[in-house]
Structure formats: C-alpha cells, structure tokens
C-alpha cells in the first residue's frame, strides 16, 4: 500500500488549485451569479435606448426637448409609444434603478461578510484543524483563499461598475453605429453627447490594483509579524501587530475616501485586516498557521 500512498499524494500547488476552485464555488452565488443577474436590468435599458434612438431617427424627434410623447398617436405603433413613455416619462431615478443599486450594494456587502466569515472559519473555527492539517503548505492555502476572494471581488466590482455606467450613461444608435454616452437621463435628454465612454475599465482596474496591493502588503506584514511572534511569543508583539493592522487598514480606507473612490471599497479593505487579526488570534491555538 505504501507505494500507492506515495503515488496518490497531490502536490501542494495542485491542492492549492483545488482549494481555489472550492472557494470560487463557495462564493459563486454572491461573487458571480448574482452580480451577472443584476446586470440584466441595465442590458434591458440599453436595448430600450437603442430602440428609442431608432424611433427618434424614424420620426425626426428633437430629443433635446424630449418631445417624443407629443407625436401624433396615429403615426406610431403602440410598442413604439410604450418605449417613448418609458424613457421620457419616468423619474430620474426610477424604482428599478434604485432597487438594482441597493441590491448590488447588498450583494457586495454579503460577499465581503461571507469572505470574512470563511476566513475565520478556516483559520479560527472548529474545522480549522481539518483545513490546516491538509497536505498543503500554509502559504499556498492562504494564497488560494486570497485569489478566490480577489477573483470574486473583481467580478463583483466590475459588474457593479458596468451596471453603474449603463444606468447613468447608455448606448446611442446614430443610424449607422453604436456610441456610448457618458450620460443619458431617463427623460430622453442627453448630456456630453460627443463624449465617448469606455465602460470605466481603467477605474475598475485601478480599484482592483489597489485591492491587490493592499492584500500583498498585508500578507507580507503578516508573514513578518508571524515570524517575530513565533520567535518572541510575547503579548506585546500581538498588541503591536493589531495596532499595525488597524492603522494600515484605516490609512487605506482614508486614502480611498480622499480619492472619492467607490463606497464599497472600504469594506473590501477590511478583509485583510480581519484576516490579519484572525491570524494573530490563532497563535494561541494553532500557531503553525502563520506563514
């Protein structure tokens, strides 16, 4: 049996990959499925905008006045009238938009809460003995969890950004091609119509890059402090590490606020902080967790 035992061993990186897939599966509802589903209203609105633009071109409507509603009912079909009504009569922020924005905020908060809870459970909870006794080095275990949290967070952030752009702005059909407007109100009034917008890719990547840098920065501090704590094993070091973790997280959150970044971001930045604290707390129980 011993040969079989040896041959059956998975190497650390493969196990790390499997753990990553498991974690992605764990977060798939909040991190992937729901954000994608929540994009549907934006897509529907864009389809309506394109159909509206075609109606505008067809009847030569002056959109700056938003007067599609003044058209002779005999000339247009009931479907076309319905689209005009939707886009020219609704409030600036209709319930659908408000609902979707709230839902997105809720999903992002839930995702962050779940990630924190999972980290606690894995490293601090009753099943940590199982998680940490896996034949996988602790850095690999840690990094696989970090990557799974990052991937799902990225997808959520990206979806919320895309949704925001498509709720605020919109596609415009000019008769031959599609353009992306930076702003279109729900009364059919356009703003900055000459300005094209690129789905805010840059801002999404900016946010995510900061998110990654923060994780890696805290990860490094965690590793160093873990080594120090193992060497000295004093409560003073634990206190110092907690202060560093809180100060670091606060500094990042504060710098984000100064840059007027997305509101949900501070929440995401709390993950490494909590994780760091969890790791410190684990010293008293399973200190081998510290990389």
């Amino acid at each position: 049996m011993s040969d079989m035992v040896i041959n059956n061993r998975k190497n650390g990186s493969r196990l790390g990959l499997e753990r990553f897939i498991l974690d992605i599966k764990k977060y798939r509802l909040l991190g992937i499925i729901l954000p994608v589903i929540l994009l549907i209203p934006s897509v529907i609105i864009q389809v309506l905008w394109i159909r509206y633009d075609k109606i505008v071109i067809k009847y030569g409507i002056d959109t700056s006045l938003g007067n599609g509603r003044l058209l002779d009912p005999e000339k247009i079909t009931s479907g076309e009238r319905r689209i005009i009504r939707i886009l020219e009569y609704v409030l600036d922020e209709p319930p659908l938009v408000r609902g979707v924005l709230w839902a997105f905020t809720l999903v992002l908060i839930l995702l962050v809460v779940c990630q924190i809870a999972d980290m606690f459970k894995s490293f601090f909870g009753s099943n940590s003995a199982l998680v940490l006794a896996a034949p996988c080095s602790k850095p690999i275990l840690f990094v696989s969890k970090f990557l799974a949290a990052s991937v799902t967070s990225f997808i959520s952030i990206w979806c919320s950004q895309v949704q925001w752009v498509f709720i605020e702005g919109g596609l415009k059909w000019d008769g031959s091609s599609l353009n992306i407007m930076s702003f279109r109100t729900f009364r059919g009034i356009e703003s900055n119509s000459d300005l094209s917008l690129d789905l805010n890719w840059v801002s999404v990547l900016d946010i995510f890059a900061i998110f990654l840098l923060l994780w890696l920065g805290v990860f490094t501090i965690l590793a160093i402090s873990g080594k120090i704590q193992k060497a000295f094993k004093t409560p003073v070091m634990v206190a110092v590490a907690i202060v560093i973790a809180i100060a670091l997280s606060w500094a990042f959150v504060h710098s984000m606020e100064l840059q007027s970044e997305v509101n949900t971001l501070p929440l995401l930045f709390m993950i490494p902080c909590i994780l760091f604290l969890a790791d410190i707390l684990l010293i008293s129980k399973y200190d081998a967790v510290t990389v």
Binding site: A129, A134, C136
Partner: peptide
C-alpha cells in the same frame, strides 16, 4: 510540513464537520 500532513490522518478531539 505539508509533505508529512499527506502521510498523517489526524482525528481531532472535537468535531470539525459542523
């Protein structure tokens, strides 16, 4: 280390599958 963890099956004194 990780290698020896693959050789050991550790049954803790508490329930890990809650």
């Amino acid at each position: 280390g990780a290698k020896t963890n693959g050789l050991i099956s550790y049954v803790p004194d508490h329930f890990v599958f809650g």
